[in-house]
Amino acid sequence: MDATITLHVDGEEHRLTVDTRTGLLDALRDRLGETSPKKGCDHGQCGACTVLVEGRRILSCLALAVSHDGARVTTAAGLAPRGDLHPVARAFVDRDALQCGYCTPGQVCSAVGVLDEAARGWPSLVTDESGDDPGEGAPVPLDREEIRERMSGNLCRCGAYTHIVDAVESVGSAGAGGEAAR
């Protein structure tokens, strides 16, 4: 059964008719030719399909396109609209944070989400919540333990994790990188 929907992808509006069973990932890749989100497991286990929807990082493989009618989607390719590299993507290159590169667009989108979430004071499981007021919402400093925990939903079969943490840490300590999320 078909449905006609609108998707705003990387700043461009698309009107398309999809089978109701179509996942957001397949709509992006197969219908709109946006191939930076990758299909790894297609079951929400690997993170290669991570995109930002309304600024929040989600797994596009577990999202139905029909349920995202009107959504604003940002892919890794769309993080730098003028052909420049986004600061997070630049850090991945500078820190040699990839080998085959298949998981990298998902890693980059996820890292942009991590930087935004930490800046808004969202805790992770390893955040020290024993202070006077854990709900005050101060930005969470991203040390390596925080980055590992917050990036755990992105697998890298090449095992580039150490350099991925380096890359995210370098952007996090520069205090930038999450702004593209919103």
Binding site: G47, E129, R150, G153
Partner: peptide, 18 residues
């Protein structure tokens, strides 16, 4: 605090956002 910790120990950041 136990509820916040329980949520944060489940799934991944992307899944928790959805």
């Amino acid at each position: 605090p136990m509820l916040s910790a329980a949520l944060l120990s489940g799934a991944s950041g992307q899944l928790r956002n959805a």
